[in-house]
Design a protein around this nucleic acid. Structure first.
Lengths: 198, 198
DNA sequence: GTTTAAATTGAACGTTCGTTTAGTAAAAAT
DNA sequence: ATTTTTACTAAACGAACGTTCAATTTAAAC
């Protein structure tokens, strides 16, 4: 690994930490450069634009999201077990990322920040979140086809509800702390799955 | 109504419109002043700080939220009917406010922007959102006591689920458009209520 | 209509923003 | 060890930021 790549990773690590707190918008190159103790221009040269920096942050975060939340599900054959695996790893996945994001899930933050601001960042986020929802929907469909979930279940609605419960969990953390919110998420998703089990 | 109050309301109207798109953080006094065609300093004098401006925006938004979403429920005696009334008016309430907020629900945006940034704005938001959740929980409890909902229902979990579904709806609007998201919200909340009806 | 008070302006403060450029230091390749 | 490529710095750019202040226009009170 070359020197440039090493410092770039250092920058991304520190920037993700900041971005999960202040967001991708308010995230400033000056602030990051202080954290990594280098000049603004030196840092800037790694990305050539703030937009590219934001994109790199999201792409890095997604890589770890996939690794932590989605990958473990692959070891299961049953679609229902895959869903349970995702449910288990989803809340507070950001705690387990090698780049600590102590402000919470950066995707939710970014999604809401950018949902009305056209550009590459929004496009990426739309795509990323959409793929995630589609994946959950597909798993629900597979589980129905495999006879694990009832035929009456609407996979679309199922995905919407699971996704919503995750959003709720991540805001409820502020009201009821980490464990309380996670418990609610787990119970609600459990109930949801149990209710539709064939 | 004095002149000052009139322009202040004009400012708030335009600022809310902007804030619902860019957020309360990126919202700049310069941008607002362009919209209302007055000087930055003149606008500033109405609030004396950006934080106070942000607070005024949220307080105004809450006033209309209460008027549009919560008030109609008061005309019903039955807790369950109150819940249905809220369900009906909640999604896209911001469309009906006299101050158009075309970016969507400003509370969600602000909540996520400020959840890690101490100050008066965050304190207000915590309190406002917490009160809302508590109110839903109370209605669920009342409905149980009135024999409209089953005793086995956990009011806390009920409130979490409804709140989550609202969050989900407001992000799903970006994926599936306004009506599709609203339909999902309605169906899920209907299912939820139907499932627990006594 | 005159006086008093409120509302608004324009200029300036220091700071930060993202970005560019020219030059230096360090690393990689030969 | 020398050359070439890469990484980084320092200085500067114009623009925007929130805020202050003295001066001026406008509205309210009498």
């Amino acid at each position: 690994m070359t020197k440039g790549e090493r410092t770039k990773q250092l920058i991304i690590r520190e920037a993700l930490n900041l971005a999960s707190i202040v967001g991708l918008e308010s995230l400033s190159i000056g602030e990051i450069s202080k954290k990594v103790k280098m000049s603004r221009s030196g840092l800037f040269a790694h990305f050539n634009s703030k937009e590219q920096l934001q994109l790199d942050l999201l792409k890095t975060a997604e890589k770890h999201f996939i690794e932590i939340v989605l990958k473990p599900a692959e070891s299961f054959d049953s679609p229902l077990e895959k869903l349970s695996s995702i449910q288990k790893h989803w809340p507070s996945w950001f705690d387990k990322a090698p780049f600590e994001m102590k402000g919470g899930c950066i995707f939710i933050l970014a999604m809401i920040e950018f949902d009305d601001q056209p550009g590459l960042v929004r496009d990426f986020l739309y795509d990323q979140q959409n793929r995630l929802v589609k994946y959950i929907r597909k798993l629900a469909r597979d589980a129905i086809r495999a006879g694990e979930l009832k035929e009456q279940l609407d996979p679309e609605l199922f995905a919407y509800e699971v996704y919503s419960l995750y959003l709720g969990q991540s805001i409820y953390r502020k009201f009821h702390g980490d464990s309380g919110a996670k418990a609610k998420f787990n119970q609600s998703v459990n109930d949801l799955i149990e209710r539709w089990k064939a």
